[in-house]
């Protein structure tokens, strides 16, 4: 299974990866530090799931989400963000994200993501 983790913050990526290692130890993990890098990696690798941050330089998560969905309307994207406004959640769900979780993500969240949100 290929998983793409996108966050400009290293600790942000690492906390997602740490949970992934517990829940999905066999997954092959790719990392990107902004939306543009994410988009390129998505095109190349066609990951099974994407963990995407919203606030990032160069290209933010909203734009990246839109573009990824354009590449593959069945893309499985989970938003992990510090933004906990309801409005933000509504926006990303409308744009095609499977769900949105507040930072920092924990193991329970990760279990829920794979059991309920993603259709792999």
């Amino acid at each position: 299974m290929k998983i793409l983790v996108v966050d400009d913050s290293k600790i942000g990526r690492m906390s997602v990866i740490k949970s992934l290692e517990v829940i999905k130890p066999d997954a092959e993990i790719f990392q990107a530090v902004n939306g543009l890098e994410a988009l390129e990696l998505f095109r190349q690798e066609r990951p099974d799931a994407v963990f995407l941050d919203l606030t990032m330089p160069v290209m933010d998560g909203y734009e990246a989400l839109k573009r990824i969905m354009e590449v593959d309307k069945n893309a499985q994207v989970i938003i992990i963000s510090a933004d906990i406004q309801n409005e933000a959640k509504l926006r990303v769900l409308a744009a095609g994200a499977k769900n949105m979780y507040p930072k920092p993500i924990n193991d329970e969240n990760m279990v829920q993501i794979f059991e309920q949100d993603l259709s792999l």
Binding site: S9, I11, G12, T55, S81, A82, P102, K103, P104
Partner: peptide, 9 residues
């Protein structure tokens, strides 16, 4: 930065 980001959220 990530701490602040989360707090700011």
């Amino acid at each position: 930065k990530e701490f602040i980001n989360i707090s700011m959220g």
